[in-house]
């Protein structure tokens, strides 16, 4: 450290600091020794602790945090405004009417006839299997 710096430091350190007001001694010590005032600094509530923790977290760069929050709000707004409000296609389709079913079957039959594999039996008709009692089966075998 050179002389100039030392001189400058010395000059600064010689500047006397302001004195503490004398009347504060009684007031501050009175408050410190007062049980009522002591209770003022009793453990803080959950919300005040939370508040202080959050302020400690956000304090260093409040503008950056605010900017980030604004970007999120903007994204949500854009997302919400671009949402497709038209109902689903499936919702629009109503069940086919009986006339339409008949017409479709007619077309199917005509197509099958043209192709040559038309079966008179209704393809949609299910074969019903009804099991018979064993006694009846025996009768069938006997005959």
């Amino acid at each position: 450290m050179n002389d100039e710096t030392e001189q400058f430091e010395s000059r600064l350190s010689r500047q006397p600091l302001r004195q503490i007001p004398r009347e504060w001694r009684g007031e501050i010590l009175g408050a410190a020794n007062s049980p009522a005032r002591r209770s003022e600094v009793m453990p803080a509530s959950f919300f005040s602790v939370l508040n202080s923790q959050l302020s400690a977290l956000f304090w260093p760069h409040p503008k950056a945090w605010a900017g980030l929050a604004a970007v999120w709000v903007f994204i949500f707004a854009v997302n919400f405004s671009m949402r497709d409000r038209t109902p689903m296609i499936a919702e629009k389709i109503s069940p086919p009417s009986p006339e339409m079913i008949v017409e479709l079957k007619k077309q199917q039959r005509m197509f099958a006839e043209l192709v040559g594999s038309y079966e008179t039996q209704d393809a949609d008709q299910r074969k019903i299997f009804s099991p018979k009692p064993r006694s009846e089966r025996v009768e069938i075998l006997m005959t």
């Binding site: 600091l17 007001p21 504060w24 501050i28 408050a31 410190a32 020794n33 002591r38 600094v41 009793m42």
Partner: peptide, 23 residues
């Protein structure tokens, strides 16, 4: 005082410290 530059704030902080020490 050098930190706050406000006498009332300085007093509050000083009092807070001594109350904490007493408690």
């Amino acid at each position: 005082l050098n930190f706050t530059r406000d006498e009332a704030d300085t007093r509050d902080l000083l009092q807070e410290i001594f109350i904490k020490l007493a408690r």
